[in-house]
């Protein structure tokens, strides 16, 4: 990290459930340069000021999805957020909202990952294509149908931004419902009927009231709000067409 000659104060919400009754705020002063990210600042604090600070990170380039934090109240990737934009400071960093805190800025992601298998996020085929038949061919237009939804990196910023998920943790939530659309929209996939129950449930698309925060904070432009609301129409079609036996499935 290029330390630079500017300084900024950072307030961090610290919490160790084994020792603290409630979270406390600590203030750190860090040097920064034009290209210093919030993650750089956290690493500086851990290396030079307080080794007990806990936070997740890995790739530093907005593709691993592990360094999400609340930065001044907005869910953000700390590697993709720059200190210069918060000058003269201070800026306030907390763990992602709507998830239990394990320690400091590290949250328990089970509320998302426990639900993940139910969205069937893989290609489902009635009959596997034989190797000898060669690869699945897909036109650019077919590929474009899931280009945006396949960009999700499971960073969970959308869950921290979603007031509905905050009130009701059983809600499947933005990223999972976008993931359902990603596979349903794939021309190689035949598993839509298996995924419709998740879409059709009260805890599926119907818990969304189109607040739109998920799409506003998404660092990969997935636009989960649009994906969910396209699937409200799919669910509505499925609701009525099932009586004609031409619906896309989804048992009670």
């Amino acid at each position: 990290m290029n330390r630079g000659n500017r300084q900024i104060d950072i307030l961090i919400s610290r919490y160790d459930p084994e020792r603290d009754d409630q979270p406390r705020t600590e203030r750190y002063t860090v040097p920064y340069a034009h290209d210093s990210s919030v993650l750089d600042a956290l690493l500086y604090i851990k290396d030079h000021l307080d080794g007990s600070l806990s936070f997740r990170w890995s790739c530093r380039m907005a593709i691993c999805g592990s360094c999400g934090k609340m930065i001044n109240g907005v869910p953000s990737l700390s590697c993709k957020t720059f200190l210069r934009d918060y000058a003269p400071g201070p800026l306030y960093i907390e763990a992602l909202h709507h998830f239990p805190v394990i320690k400091d800025l590290v949250v328990d992601q089970a509320g998302f990952f426990d639900k993940l298998p139910e969205s069937r996020p893989w290609l489902i085929r009635d009959q596997e294509r034989a190797l000898a038949d060669g690869p699945h061919r897909q036109s650019p237009r077919q590929r474009a149908r899931f280009a945006s939804t396949s960009a999700c990196i499971n960073c969970l910023l959308c869950y921290a931004a979603c007031p509905q998920y905050g009130m009701k943790p059983d809600f499947a939530g933005p990223a999972l419902l976008a993931l359902v659309e990603r596979y349903n929209a794939d021309s190689r996939d035949q598993g839509k009927a298996e995924r419709m129950p998740m879409i059709n449930a009260e805890d599926g698309v119907w818990s969304c009231t189109l607040v739109g925060n998920c799409s506003a904070v998404c660092p990969k432009d997935v636009d989960p709000a649009a994906a969910i609301n396209r699937n409200k129409l799919e669910s509505a079609k499925d609701y009525f067409l099932r009586f004609l036996k031409i619906g896309s499935g989804g048992a009670e």
Binding site: N200, K232, S235
Partner: peptide, 17 residues
């Protein structure tokens, strides 16, 4: 343990209106 998503919501009736 994965969460099970059911039953089907009746929301489509009022949502379409």
């Amino acid at each position: 343990m994965a969460k099970q998503y059911k039953p089907r919501s009746h929301e489509p009736v009022v949502w379409l209106l």
